[in-house]
Design a protein around this nucleic acid. Structure first.
Lengths: 204, 204
DNA sequence: AAATATTTTAAACATTTGTTTAATTTTTTT
DNA sequence: AAAAAAATTAAACAAATGTTTAAAATATTT
């Protein structure tokens, strides 16, 4: 393992990410994390003050620094078709690296009053929406069907992300190994854009 | 409240469902549940033996008795188009009644070793797949495109269920009230079948 | 090399939490 | 109405868990 020469702080953070993503905030314990980082529980609080602070740091990094940059591909300056292919491809590769990330983020947001909700409002405060504008322009030009942007966006996100959220369910039901599951989502890199684009190009 | 004349056992179960769905097993406490049911913690164990037993009962009911019957619509004996519309409609209505249900079920299944995984294998042991056969037959007849069934199934499930999993995220990002969100998923009752069927009918 | 700061450890603390006990009240049966 | 069973309550218990303390070890600075 190359992890042996990481600083203690980094080892704890890596361990915490692993544990939190696997179990969620409620079911993860500082002792889990300390053991996984091969240190003791006092060090966890020494470096991060509290379980909650540590969680917030990992949550923020996972969302703001990992997920959002890829999600922002939809605001890139690219032709529609290339953009959708690029988004699905990059998001899929990200999620193959971090398959528990969507469940981690979203499961901490259930219940209206979740503390994570506020955190997210700050993060994505200033987001523009070039993608919506692009769809509307292409529709105005007659290149694609006129659609409700929110519906298309929701479907696109759903098709890419949901398989990872239900990964274990899919693996169980279809009897897939992790490699086979990854082959399945790789195939979706073509299947998803195909479905979206076929729909958009079919002027109703 | 009509709940006042429920038996204590039923009040506890209702409360437990509410709390478990909101917080998940790990973050829910017996004291939460007792308070929500307006009784004391001893009663929870008096009727259900343990927190885990109570959870299992609710998990099984939620999945086997609530979710699966609607999912089985895909195996009904119905024309393809009608079936997809019916499935999306019924599933959406179910999830509007119980919006936290998908996150509840799926969040307890992360980590390969989750105890819920075994439970699920038993439940859906004997499932046939009339829907797959139907898609293959219609493709053979030339009525629809030849496709990978698993991809279509995954996309259909994703488009219906994912909005509820990311409900709070969507409500926050788009500034929606619950009513507005429900209007949004109601619109998807048309949008989702339209996208799937447009894709299937477009023989590549 | 001494002094200082940083990191690490083991133990203890305080709270939370799942569970149980034993007594009391209420309901049902005889 | 008496006896038995079931339901309810308050309190206690034991284990788990987030956090802190104080001392020891290590690294850094002077």
């Amino acid at each position: 393992m190359a992890k042996l020469d990481l600083s203690t702080e980094e080892k704890i953070k890596d361990a915490a990410k692993k544990i939190f993503l696997e179990k969620g905030f409620g079911s993860a314990t500082t002792r889990d994390i300390a053991e996984c980082a091969e240190t003791n529980i006092a060090l966890v609080n020494y470096y991060f003050r509290s379980k909650e602070k540590l969680f917030h740091e990992i949550f923020r990094e996972s969302f703001a620094e990992t997920f959002m940059p890829v999600a922002r591909i939809l605001n890139d300056n690219l032709p529609l078709e290339a953009k959708i292919y690029k988004f699905v491809d990059h998001m899929t590769e990200l999620l193959k690296r971090d398959p528990l990330l969507p469940m981690f983020v979203l499961s901490e947001m259930r219940g209206e009053n979740s503390k994570m909700c506020e955190l997210l409002t700050e993060m994505q405060a200033e987001e523009q929406n070039q993608f919506q504008q692009q769809l509307e322009e292409e529709a105005a030009k007659g290149n694609i069907r006129k659609t409700d942007f929110n519906q298309v966006e929701a479907s696109l996100m759903a098709m890419v992300i949901f398989p990872f959220i239900s990964m274990n369910m899919i693996k169980m039901k279809k009897n897939l190994t992790t490699e086979e599951f990854y082959r399945f989502v790789d195939e979706r890199k073509k299947a998803i854009p195909e479905m979206i684009l076929t729909f958009l190009r079919d002027r109703a």
